[in-house]
Design a binder for these strands. Structure first.
Lengths: 124, 124, 124, 124
DNA sequence: GTGGTCTAGACCACG
DNA sequence: GTGGTCTAGACCACT
């Protein structure tokens, strides 16, 4: 369920963050569901527990999960979760839009792109 | 003509790459035009020559410029240059928009974000 | 009467301490009244007896209850009990308000925050 | 300038965060000012560089400082800084106000406390 | 030199 | 068992 490419140049903990974020977005992980423990996940994918801890900490900062000492780590409750997910996705949109604006690409062009992608998505 | 923000957390060489790419896109730098030498540019903007060299190397790898030992560095002659750059920016927008759409974020929300960023950009 | 939120990231024993402290403050628990035994309380709310024991120990250290071996646990006989608790809460507010004032945050802003939190609390 | 109590139960990195936050609030550290490097600060106060790094990372997440690889760590620029400080202080007010509300303390009482503290602050 | 990431191994508080 | 913190020491990218 959780995999990382140890040889990739993108940090392992970021891969994990993306990995889990995607599982949440797709609904594979539901609100309040328990995540594997830091140690067990580290053992499973063959990395150091500190690295998993860093990924979990990152996810907690983003409001996607919460960690409780002595009990484990859990997906955030539904209401807080959807809000956190939306904030994260919009934030990720910020930089590339600015880039486009700065490069002189017209607003209509970007708007058309958005429109097109949403139309395609609807067909699925 | 060439500026870097020493206060940004973005690596200086990346700022330079973006800087020159933008000048090409906007037409301020034309195909086959000569770029300042590594040393002179480094002196001008007060940074380490190694950093300029790294930026030029990056640009050469992307096919935007070419370096001729002993003679200097030049903008690539390609015709489809600007077109390629714009396509690159739009391509970078693709993934995050899809993510947003997939996460159930409404199209209007994304549109508003685009609108807002373009308005801010205009003020600069 | 005693409840804990297993989903909260706050340690369970701290929730229990707060819970019982609040019951004392509100007068629901009177001086010298007997508390449920460690084992029965643990069974009732479905947590580990060690956790309840830790909470009781904490309350005894604070002078709010006393444990008598073989007989059970009881609310402390103190008269100024509730008063002390309220003062404690207000005292906890002191520092952050001063910090806010010192940081130049306007009084209205703080007032609005208080108002907002009390409105939310009312809905529960 | 920077001190920590190695024997305290509050984590070293949190002490550092509070320490630096206070220096910023008091104006002892100004926008864009450079902070000591992770390694040098760790050496100075006799702790592990990772611990300093964790504190700096925390401060960056809060928007109070920014870190640039190869150049160093700096206090955030003025505009972003004041905003981050305000957000932090208001967030710190949240929990104790909720506590007070939950403990049945009347809103007017809290309001009066706020009023009183602001009046005292004004006299300074 | 700077920050960013990772490992190995340890101790603590919580349940 | 769980997460939270810390140390020691390493390698990498950037300046």
């Amino acid at each position: 369920m959780f995999t990382v490419d140890i040889r990739s140049r993108v940090p392992i903990y970021e891969q994990l963050v993306k990995n889990i974020t995607d599982l949440i977005t797709s609904g594979a992980l539901s609100p309040d569901e328990q995540l594997p423990s830091v140690r067990s996940l580290a053992r499973d994918i063959g990395i150091n527990p500190n690295t998993v801890q860093k990924a979990y900490q990152d996810l907690e900062n983003k409001g996607l999960i919460y960690q409780a000492a002595g009990r484990g780590s859990f997906i955030a409750p539904g209401d807080a979760l959807t809000q956190a997910v939306i904030e994260g996705k919009l934030k990720a949109l910020n930089a590339p839009i600015k880039e486009a604006a700065y490069a002189g690409i017209k607003k209509v062009t970007v708007m058309e792109l958005v429109d097109q992608i949403y139309s395609e998505e609807q067909k699925l």
